[in-house]
Simulated scan of single mutants.
Amino acid sequence: MHIRLYTKTNCPLCDKAKAILAELQADYRFTMEEIDIYEDEALLEKYQLMIPVVELDGEEIGYGMMKKETIRKRLRQAQKS
Rank of each mutant, 00 (worst) to 15 (best):
E34I: 11
K8P: 00
D36I: 05
L75E: 03
A78K: 08
Y38N: 15
E41H: 05
R4S: 08
A26M: 09
A22L: 13
T70F: 01
T70C: 10
C14Y: 04
E55W: 03
M32E: 03
T70W: 10
L43Y: 09
T9P: 04
M1T: 14
L21F: 03
E69Q: 15
S81H: 06
N10G: 05
R76E: 15
T7A: 05
M50A: 14
Y6V: 12
R4L: 02
T9D: 12
L13E: 06
E23I: 14
P12V: 10
Q77N: 13
R74S: 08
D27N: 13
Q48S: 09
K18S: 12
I51M: 04
K73A: 15
I61H: 03
L49K: 06
V54S: 01
F30K: 06
L75M: 11
M66H: 02
E39S: 12
K73R: 15
E41L: 14
D27C: 05
I3V: 12
M1C: 11
Y63Q: 07
P12S: 10
Y47F: 15
D36R: 10
Y28I: 07
Q48K: 11
Y47W: 08
A19I: 11
I71Q: 02
L5T: 04
P52W: 05
K46Q: 13
E41F: 12
L49M: 11
I37W: 05
